[in-house]
Computed example of a mutant assay.
Amino acid sequence: MPSATDDLIQRLYEAPPEGFVASRSAAIEDARKAGDRATAKRLAALKKPTVAAWVVNLLALRRPELIEELVELSTALREAQRGLDGAALRELTNQRRQVVSALVSAAGMLARAEEPSIKLPLGEVEATLTAALAEPEIAAQVRTGRLIRAATYAGFGEVPRPRLRLVTDEAGTHAEDDDEGDEGGEVVEFPREKDADRAAERRRREYEQRHRELRRELSNAQAAEKRADEQLERAEAAERDAGHLVEDLDAELAELERRRTEAQADVARRKQARRLAERETAAARRQVGDVQAALEDLESDEPE
């Protein structure tokens, strides 16, 4: 059963991406206030999805049964490729186009219902769903509803056709197309069929070579993506730490400002007290002078 945190993460990835950062920050702050450091750390690791990834996430979260249909079709396509079943592959390829088109349409409707004014990169959505058909790993990522960027795949390639041949048995029974062959179970190949076989074999080799190249490119791109993600995580962590430092300094500055205001008020009170003391001192000195003068006058008039 999904936890409360899982439900929160699902809501984050269902909402339009423009509000993702603010919503994530608010959720992190709530977790920190609640003393839940593990949840705060988990939320801080979440990445903002692109618009295309968000559209695919909506489809996976709101219409998971459509994604399951996509996965079933993917399995059928791979089986047809392994079996070199050209007819089945052509039929499934046509079906693939129809399914992907229907899924893109459904995803677009969901996204527009959430954010009518947003510009939808449906080409990237289609590329991601097509990639999910080709790669089980991408399909698994799509199922989570937490994609952060669109995916691409070069295509399924050409599948070579089976070799065309005529096989006869010892009784001279015909096989295909009512063409006659030699006796004794011999395989008879026609020149044009040999040419077709060579062309198919060439296409197969080209496909395999291109597939290997693209797999290498994909591996390199994934490694670069991982490095970029790690760099982004470090940058985000540094940004959060810097933000927390600014918050702490702001709090210290506020405290210092309060103490400064109190000190200024105390200085004003002490200045007023000093001035009062100065006036009292001056009055006392005048009184001392007056008394001394009176005493001197009295002493000068003392009878002999």
Rank of each mutant, 00 (worst) to 15 (best):
S101T: 15
R203M: 06
R274Q: 10
L253M: 04
A150E: 04
W54R: 06
R270P: 02
P49L: 02
P136N: 00
A88I: 09
E252F: 01
L120N: 04
D36Y: 06
E206T: 14
R270C: 01
A154H: 12
E296P: 13
F156D: 08
R11P: 02
T93Q: 11
A53S: 04
E65N: 12
L122Q: 06
Y207F: 10
E262I: 02
R203T: 07
A283C: 06
F190E: 07
M109E: 15
A199L: 12
L89K: 15
E304M: 12
P160H: 00
E236Q: 15
D250P: 12
R112A: 08
S74K: 03
D248L: 08
A76F: 00
Y153L: 03
V100W: 05
R143G: 02
R32W: 02
A52W: 04
E193Y: 11
R161F: 00
A224C: 10
V291H: 05
L256W: 05
A76N: 05
A139N: 01
R198L: 07
A44S: 07
A140V: 01
P116R: 06
L214W: 08
L147D: 02
S117Q: 13
V21M: 06
P303G: 02
E186W: 08
L133M: 01
A87V: 15
R163W: 00
K271G: 03
D6P: 13
A38D: 10
V267D: 07
Q292M: 07
I148C: 03
L66D: 09
R260V: 07
L89N: 15
L147S: 04
E126P: 12
E72N: 08
T93G: 14
D301R: 12
E72R: 11
T168G: 05
A254R: 11
V104G: 05
P191Y: 12
L249M: 07
L295S: 09
V288R: 13
T152Y: 01
G243L: 04
A154N: 10
A45W: 06
R258E: 00
L133G: 02
A284N: 15
R90V: 00
E91Q: 15
E233A: 15
